[in-house]
């Protein structure tokens, strides 16, 4: 999504964590209360989730938010 211009390049490993659990995008979406398309957008990095969704993902994957999402500083 180009809609909201973010100055931060946020990366995530939602896709990796999902595959590790053997879930489809649809199944993960159902678990955290969003659509398959939103999970797809998240994994592609074209959409940054709300704080609420980030917390729900963190809770579901049993991981800290900063372990799922981080800023790509190019280092």
């Amino acid at each position: 999504m180009t809609r909201i211009q973010s100055k931060l390049d946020i990366k995530n490993n939602v896709g990796i964590l999902r595959v590790e659990l053997g879930l489809t995008q649809e199944q993960l979406g159902l678990e955290v209360g969003v659509t398959r398309a939103t999970i797809n957008a998240l994994e592609k990095g074209s959409y940054n989730p709300s704080l609420e969704l980030a917390f729900r993902l963190s809770k579901f994957f049993n991981a800290r938010i900063e372990d799922i999402f981080w800023e790509n500083t190019g280092e």
Binding site: M1, R3, I4, G33, V34, T35, A37, T38, A41, P49
Partner: peptide, 11 residues
């Protein structure tokens, strides 16, 4: 249906 679609509809 979810937060992303809410943002998209606003845009």
């Amino acid at each position: 249906r979810d937060e992303r679609e809410l943002i998209v509809s606003g845009e």
